[in-house]
């Protein structure tokens, strides 16, 4: 059976992707920024950019001075909107993640990210308050700082957690707490309730802090408090600007 995609314009079938020569100098240059993790990180937040979504947030994370190491994530929340079919006493939640420009994350890992995020937010959104409805969250990664072929997903996942929280707040969907995430080495921990409750923990398989889970959580908490402070400050400031 011919399974070509006839809905999209795909171009010639014998085209090969561009293969770039590997530069030795750039490989060395790529290493250091991964080490100094949470230093000099700045976050730019803007809510409500996507006008046809119920709520949206735009996050720009910069590490240090350079503009290259920059993550840009646009999250939009659609819902609560009526869901058809069988009655459900709770809202159903779905998370979709898409890379808008460079596609580098393998689809299996994308699915894992979506599952991880929807698990976190199922616990955080007051789903009982929205029966018979669906809440759909769409994440669009516009710029990705990963330059090596091997994906370093942790900063992106942390940005997703922060972005979704902001978008939910923008949409006016009831959440139990402003959830935020912190990263440490190759771990992401999402917290709520002022860092006393862990709502999600992501651990990469290549992580070297295998046994020391408590110190990982402790390190992530510092990062979490910093991120949450940024989020809350932004929300208060934008609320004051509205009035």
């Amino acid at each position: 059976m011919n399974i070509t995609d006839r809905r999209r314009i795909l171009g010639p079938s014998n085209a090969k992707p561009l293969v770039f020569e590997r530069l030795e100098s750039s490989e060395q240059a790529a290493q250091p920024p991964q080490e100094k993790n949470n230093e000099n990180e700045s976050m730019y937040i803007k809510n409500g950019l996507v006008s046809n979504a119920n709520g949206s947030s735009y996050l720009e994370l910069k590490r240090g001075e350079s503009s290259e190491q920059c993550t840009i994530l646009l999250s939009s929340v659609y819902g609560p909107r009526p869901s058809r079919g069988a009655f459900s006493s709770k809202a159903s939640l779905s998370v979709q993640f898409k890379e808008v420009t460079i596609e580098k994350i393998p689809s299996g890992e994308l699915k894992e990210i979506c599952n991880f995020l929807s698990n976190i937010f199922s616990a955080v959104i007051n789903l009982e308050r929205y029966p018979k409805s669906g809440i759909d969250i769409f994440l669009s990664l516009i710029k990705n700082p990963i330059t090596s072929d091997e994906a370093n997903l942790e900063p992106i996942i942390a940005a997703c957690v922060n972005g979704i929280t902001l978008a939910l707040a923008d949409a006016g969907i009831e959440i139990f707490d402003t959830v935020s995430a912190g990263t440490y080495k190759r771990n992401v921990v999402a917290f709520s309730k002022n860092g006393t409750e862990v709502v999600g923990l992501w651990k990469d398989k290549e992580d070297d802090t295998a046994n020391d889970i408590l110190s990982v959580i402790e390190n992530c908490r510092g990062n979490y408090l910093q991120n949450r402070k940024g989020i809350i400050e932004y929300l208060i400031r934008s609320k004051n600007a509205d009035i």
């Binding site: 171009g11 085209a15 090969k16 992707p17 561009l18 770039f20 590997r22 530069l23 750039s26 490989e27 240059a29 790529a30 950019l49 996507v50 006008s51 290259e68 808008v100 420009t101 460079i102 580098k104 516009i142 990963i146 330059t147 090596s148 072929d149």
Partner: peptide
């Protein structure tokens, strides 16, 4: 650092509220 970035040209256009992100890749 060009490793892994295969975007040859790009544009972000904002017209009113509408936002368009175009990226050109090649083969």
């Amino acid at each position: 650092d060009r490793k892994g970035n295969n975007i040859l040209g790009s544009n972000v256009l904002k017209c009113g509220k509408t936002m368009v992100v175009t990226s050109i890749t090649g083969g």
